[in-house]
Structure formats: structure tokens, C-alpha cells
Design a protein around this nucleic acid. Sequence first.
DNA 1: CTGGCCATTGACAACGCTGACAATGCCGTC
DNA 2: GACGGCATTGTCAGCGTTGTCAATGGCCAG
Lengths: 333, 333
Amino acid sequence: MRDVASAASVSVKTVSRVVHNYPFISDDVRGRVQAEIRRLGFRPNSNAVGLRRTDRPAGGIGVLAADLADPFYAGMLSAIEQVATARSFTTLVASSDEDPARERGLLGTFVERRLDGLIVVSADRRHDHLRPELDVGTRMVFADRPPQRLPVDCVLAAHAEGAGQAVTHLLGQGHRAIAYVGHSPVIHTARERLRGFQAALAEAGLEPHAVRTDAVDAAAAHRAAAELLATPDAPTALFADNPRLVGGVARAIAESAAPRTALVVFDDSELAQVLGVTVVAQDPRELGRRAAELLFTRLDGDRSRPRRVVLPTTLVPRGSGEGFGVALRSAGR
Amino acid sequence: MRDVASAASVSVKTVSRVVHNYPFISDDVRGRVQAEIRRLGFRPNSNAVGLRRTDRPAGGIGVLAADLADPFYAGMLSAIEQVATARSFTTLVASSDEDPARERGLLGTFVERRLDGLIVVSADRRHDHLRPELDVGTRMVFADRPPQRLPVDCVLAAHAEGAGQAVTHLLGQGHRAIAYVGHSPVIHTARERLRGFQAALAEAGLEPHAVRTDAVDAAAAHRAAAELLATPDAPTALFADNPRLVGGVARAIAESAAPRTALVVFDDSELAQVLGVTVVAQDPRELGRRAAELLFTRLDGDRSRPRRVVLPTTLVPRGSGEGFGVALRSAGR
DNA sequence: CTGGCCATTGACAACGCTGACAATGCCGTC
DNA sequence: GACGGCATTGTCAGCGTTGTCAATGGCCAG
């Protein structure tokens, strides 16, 4: 900036004013300064700006995603960016890859960069270590997964109720032997889904036909479902607790002796659409939008006590839960 | 930092030394300072650090992705993060959503934040405006899409050759009437794929049976493929130029009068795996890894002239290009 | 005992920018 | 013709941190 100033024969302060569109600058000076800015390729150093300005926000929010490769978070992220862009805020993203240690490190660098606010999809089971940041005034909103013992805003989907919707739907189709295929319930969302699954069955006076929580990926889900379907009293319906399992479970069903076994999956995916799999859908964009708006409410000065927003899920019937089997087997459609 | 210093009765400089593990600090002082740091939740302000230190890198690289929702870039990104993490660099990501104006804005904020280097998947057709940044010493590597008239490193896949592989494969299966379904060739990758497609056919003395470049998404691809297959002299094989079209084209084939029409798609996807679609696969992780390593080579001081790394593609036969049709129709597999 | 070496700590300036305040000079008004 | 008001520009300090240089004092060899 000093270079621009001397090249345009003005003070650095005047250059600063031109950069920030301060109105009372003579056209002559403004023109000279802008010309030099372009000629020299000057870019204000946001480190310096952020250092000097402590009062007003610097215009950047951080998003810590647990897994960027997951289309669910990609959609959430895109909605967040949209809200932020509308406010002229930059969105910076980092991914913890479901690693709590990495998550802590990244949150640290976000805090060090003095971003105006953070949206966190946490892979961690403890959040006590964030209390100091909170006390210092860092604004955060947790999304998709709730904070543990940390008084902070969060936006979640109704996982338990969603799993209940799936069960209710299958019960309505006449199924009584319903099995669960899913994640080990270490993550909050998986725990909630399992809880909702069991609760809905209990309410109908039933027990789960089986609960498999060893389906860490599509291949494991394929194995688990195949084993369930190979037993003499196989379940007539399966509930898969996350969209990464669709392919594996659908294939197991198609390959089994009971290709009409019903299937409902938590969360939508392109694969579920193509295969005609009935799903309980969350709206990742809405999740992101609400989280971002909550964050900006805080940045605008809202100091009320932490809020917890719970978004409803939608059951989308596509055939696999209504007696038509998955499209992998039943051609045409 | 000042608070920590006075609380521990030392100078700020000493606190700075403790933070940076300067070796010659008495255990007593180090202990007191660390205790106060924890008690007060102190975090160094990276704005100030970045401002003061101009010589050595600050430890952050930026990635500008064209579309984070695309699993291809998600994989690339993950590989970049892995390389950066191994070097103790933080990776910050932003998405242009294929909007050149947005891309320019985001590149601007990256430059303003004085990150040590950038990896760019550009949605822009012009890059002249980046020349000043380059002159100022900003390190950049273009990935997946080449820079236009900008002397800068880039890492690309062999798009034209890959499309050629697909054509050669289909020719080997006896197909002579091969149609192209794809993107409008405004993006470099689409242009290259179309070029490679045409070149490989020309080499065999053939013409494309048809070229549809209006398939902007799966639905449009479905329409385009359905129209091609409904004509009296329908093609016997289709080449789809990107993975977003798989579902649409596969469905069009399954619904058509010629469900055995061959299909090869550029880029792998989960859907292609499940449907048994033959693909020409790039390795997104390798792309990201190479780009990141190239960038770090530059950060380590390499000043040689810009390099252009081209990565080969692999043809993965899964049935749809070998006369078995897509699994959507042919059950079991 | 003295000088030199080195571990330990501090004072100070500067990084690039902007807020606060002040100076300049032109204008119209009474 | 003096004065207030306002457009325009400048000076200076300080944001939080670190590089530079220097001060302090303990220890050991000569």
C-alpha cells in the first residue's frame, strides 16, 4: 500500500480510503490511486486489516466438515456458502475426516485466524475443550451433530423420529420382522437412529428382528444383509441407517432368495433414486441454511441463550418399501 | 498475549518464545507461561503472526474447487489435505460453484489472506487477471483444468486420450455406430473429451454416429439418449462424457427397444459401479496428490519453468461396454 | 580473580493497515 | 470581509506478534 501511495503521490491513508470507497475523494486522486493499484497489482493484506479492526467482523466464516467426500455435507456446505455470500462473507472450509484430533487442530487454526464464526460438524465426543474459545467470544453453531456439554447453538435433523417414520411405514405395509443394518452407535446420529428404530417397534409391541451394527461400509452392509437373509426366519424388511449402505444392501436383497424383501434407508442419495429405494430424507441444504442463519443472527449481536433447532425428515416412497423390490432386480420401471 | 505475559510476570517476548518452543527457557518460566496460556485460553493471532513474519511460510494453502458437491473434487481435495497435513500445513477450501466471477472473488480473498500457495480448479476461461498475483510471487498450481495463457504449473488427466480409450474399446467390441452424449464443450475437459472421441473414430476411418452436447444433467442426458435410441438407425454404443450422466443414460438404455446398447462413461462413480457400467477412470486422489506435491516443491524454492503433468486414465470394463447391458435391466449379475 | 562464553530474559521497532483527530482550503452567507 | 461549514487530505498511534539487539548473571578456564 505504501508503494501505491508514493506512486500516486498521496498518503497511505488516502489509498486506504480509495480502497474502501470513502465518498469524499476527488476524482483526480481516486483515478490516480486506482490506476496505481491496478498497475502494481496491489491487494490489501487481510492480516493487517484483521489486526487493526477489532470491532467489526472481518467477513469470513469457517466450516469444519467431518467428511467432505460425503454428498450430504457437500449440500450443506453449498447452502452455507450461499447464505454467507449473500452477506458478503467468505466461507473457508476444512475437513476433519472424522478424526477428533484433527478436528481439534483445525478448530484451533480457525480460531487463530480470527474468523467471525464457525459452523462445526463434530467428529468428537467431547467438547469441553472449546469452552475457553466460547468464553473468548468465538461464535459457533454445531450442525448435524449436537455439542456435548457445551452451551452453543445447534441445528439437527430429527434422527430418532425419522427412523420411527421408516418403521411406521414398514409396519403399515404389513411387515413385522424388521431388521436394522447400520453403523456402530458411537456417532450421535447413528445412536439416535437406532434408538428411534427400537422405540417405534416397541410402541407397536414388537422387538427388532435383528440389529447389526457392524456395517461400516457398503461391503460390510452387503455381508450383514446377506447373512440376515440367509437365515431360516429371515426378516421381511430391512432398515439401513445411512446412505453409504444402499448399494450393498440392495445387492444382497437382489441376490437373495427373497428379492422382494422391503428396504428403507436413512438419507437420500443418487443411488437410492436410481434403484428406486424408499428413503427417509433429510434436507442437507436446509440444515446448512438454518445453521448459517443462526450463526449470522449471533454475529448481528443476538446474545440470547443457545438454541436447538430440530428439522423434520420426510419419508419418500419409491417402491423398495412398498412391495416392489429394488430396481436392481425388477427391470424397467 | 500481553495478558498472559503480565499474568506470568514475564515479557511478551518470552511468551512468544514459549509458544514457539524456543529451547533456552527456564523450566520455571515455561511452566508459569504455559499454565497461564491454558488458564486464559490464549491463542496466538495468526493475523499478527502473518503480518510480522514475511520470510517463512505461514503454514496455509488454499484450494479453490469448482464444485465441492462433485465427489471427484472431494477425492482430490482429500488427497491434497493429506499431503498438506503431512507438512503441517492447513488447507482452506472454497468453492466457486463453476462461476468465474465468484472464482475471481475467492482467489482475491485467498491472495489477501496471504496464504502460502493455491491450488486452483478454474471455472474461468481467462486467467490474464492472475498475472499480477503471479508476479508478486503467489504460488499456484492449476489442477484438472489448464491455465489459459498463464505460465503456471498444472496437473491434468489425459482427457482426449481417455475418450480415445473408450472409443477403441467399443470398436474392439465390434461397434461402429457410436454416439457421444455430453456437456457443451465450453469447459476444457469436455472439449478435450469430445476431441479425443472424434480423433479416435477418425483414426478408424469412422464418423461419430451423433454428437449431443446438450446433456447438462442426468435428466437432459436421459432425454438425449432416449431420442438417439428412438431413431430408426440408432447407435449401438453410447459414450457419456461425465459421471453425472450415468443414471440418465443407463435408464434410457434400459427403457429403450435396445437394452443391450453399449455404454462407456468418462470418470468412475458409485452408481457406475453398482450398475456395472464400463468407465474410463481418472484417479482424483493422484491428481490432488501430484498437484499438492508440485505446489510444495515450489514453496521449497523451486524456480524452474512451469511444468505440465499429464496423468493417464484407465479403462475399467464392467459389462456395459462388453455386451452385457447395464445391471438396471439385467438382474442378478 | 578475571575474562569469555552462554543460557536466559527483556526492550524496542516494525509488519500493513485503519481509527481518531487535525489541517487545509474552498464555498456561500450575513 | 469575516466566519462557519464542509469536502478533501494528512499525521500519528496502535492492533498482536516477532526479529534484532542488548542486558543480566552464572559458570568455567586460565
